[in-house]
Design a protein around this nucleic acid. Structure first.
Lengths: 323, 323
DNA sequence: TTGTAGGCGTTATCAA
DNA sequence: TTGATAACGCCTACAA
């Protein structure tokens, strides 16, 4: 592998001059610059990242840390983050599991976007002593720590409010993991809406955001004698599970029970019936996150991070469609 | 940020002794070792990756390069790769787009797994002068270059053969992009099977592996007067599009036309009717790829890379189910 | 406009 | 068992 030394030698200049030319510094004679660039090209020279990073204390990499690669929404966020970062010359590094902590501790990235509750607060706080962190999955405060979240509460509150107005009374909540912040916020919105409307009682089923669990709960609900009229699921995956169970046990949707979810995952557009949901523009969110980071890193300016749009998509799994 | 120098100072030893202790070298007195580790802990010391990598010429990172974050199969492969790499102490770095070439050129990873045809052969060949590369998406030969592919041809050939035996005669092929190696292999398998069975004619629809395109073609096919009895789609996503179109235009599946795909994506288990497919165990593949790499890197031993299992899942989108 | 030299934080050789 | 010291490849103040 060619190093800058080889390039300098080949071009007949000193290492520093080569470095200047290679980094587009103005203080190089155009003739010399050409010679150097030609030599670099011929030798197939590219700078060694480790050496450059060691010296400059920057890597040009942004880390995105997720709790698993197969979630249905990360793909969208990542697509948005990636598009934006590329424009500004940053690289994206996605990681999951134990690797993530290692990458943070060893400072392999200039900033971190975190959506993985397995990363401890300690690890993040330590890293954030020098580098910015955006947390998407927790409440954490500190210098260099920024938070961005979907406005779960407001979105759910509005939606449920509207559903009550449309005539639903017996509305149930099918939750996510009870310690998940997204779930909690959505639950708050749900409660607020019912409260507002003077509805005191409702059923609560405890789920875990997975299709499988939604399916099991759906089977249970199908056998209840006093069924709810409407089941609001804390995310789409649970809802898909419920749909599946109802279909198998011949619970008619939406005539007997309506179902709705949260996220707007693709799968919901292919179930029968299609799933009504509060759809989030995750790609746009990724875009915003990346934009925030590049401005912060390049211009040291702190913007506000715009959360993503939430938009209800009414489909056949609820009685009232207005699309 | 604490450096090894700080640790050495605090422990009252030289830098080199600190280094030895921190790297579990045997030649350190247990008392000194303890002092050093205590100091490291207190100072919250972690080695600087750039510095270490510069010196050791290894990063401990394996790169996985994909053409987009939202494909339905990458999640599974990545899950498998990640699980296995973590066990062996490697980090995974996933990247897409222009970042990928940068990461390779600047040697930020010790090995690369490539599933992104946007990365040029040149970039890979250059990188492979020093580091191993596994290509999943192309034919490329050279030192340090290894290839692993799903046995597309065999899997499709067997499946189509069986379908003919079951009684289908007018079988059509709905392709992926015509320059995609996976598509080509699947097409070969398809042709072989028909050839073998003495079927000379069949329709060919040119698609691009997306749901949208499958949908458009499905609509076109629904209006044909001479419809095929069976449409074999080069991947599940196309097939899902076809199912959708047929559903909308009241083409009865499988009575009028049967449909099948390739991959075994989750979506296919939620369409109505469920999609018959040649399901690939992508997670297992990821596992195999990672295993190969860790053995190669740690023991410099070249194993055979086991491709993933292909297993037909018969569902309602074809007439004959035997499950 | 170009060159010399020091240092980023490690590892590793060699001598003590 | 420990410590000086050179080196990895690059950037950059400073001198020429």
């Amino acid at each position: 592998m060619a190093t800058i030394k080889d390039v300098a030698k080949k071009a007949g200049v000193s290492i520093s001059t080569a470095s200047y030319a290679l980094n587009n510094q103005p203080n190089v004679h155009s003739k010399t610059r050409e010679k150097i660039l030609a030599a670099a090209k011929e030798l197939n020279y590219y700078p060694n990242a480790s050496a450059r990073n060691l010296k400059t204390k920057r890597t040009g990499n942004i880390g995105f840390f997720i709790y698993g690669f197969d979630g249905p929404i990360f793909g969208d966020i990542l697509e948005g983050v990636n598009n934006e970062l590329q424009k500004k010359g940053f690289n994206i590094i996605v990681s999951s599991g134990e690797s993530s902590a290692v990458i943070l501790r060893e400072r392999q990235v200039d900033a971190a976007i975190v959506f993985d509750s397995n990363l401890t607060d300690d690890t993040l706080l330590n890293y954030s002593e020098k580098y910015p962190v955006i947390v998407l999955d927790r409440d954490l405060k500190g210098k260099n720590i920024y938070k961005s979240q979907v406005d779960n509460k407001k979105a759910v509150e509005r939606f449920i409010s509207e559903m009550v107005d449309k005539g639903y009374k017996k509305i149930a909540y099918l939750s996510g993991p009870k310690d998940s912040p997204s779930n909690l916020e959505r639950y708050k919105g749900f409660c607020n809406a019912l409260n507002e409307k003077g509805i005191k009682e409702f059923k609560h089923y405890e789920g875990d955001f997975t299709i499988g669990c939604g399916y099991e709960l759906g089977k249970r609900i199908a056998q209840e004698t006093e069924k709810p009229e409407f089941i609001y699921c804390a995310n789409d995956e649970s809802a898909v599970g419920v749909l599946q169970a109802f279909r198998e046990l011949n619970v008619r949707i939406p005539d007997e029970i309506s179902v709705a979810g949260f996220d707007g995952i693709m799968l919901g557009e292919y179930t029968i019936p299609n799933l009504t949901t509060i759809a989030i523009d995750y790609k746009d969110w990724g875009h915003n996150l990346a934009h925030f980071i590049t401005v912060l890193l390049n211009e040291n300016e702190v913007l506000e991070i715009k959360g993503p749009e939430a938009k209800v998509k009414f489909k056949e799994s609820t009685k009232w469609k207005n699309y």
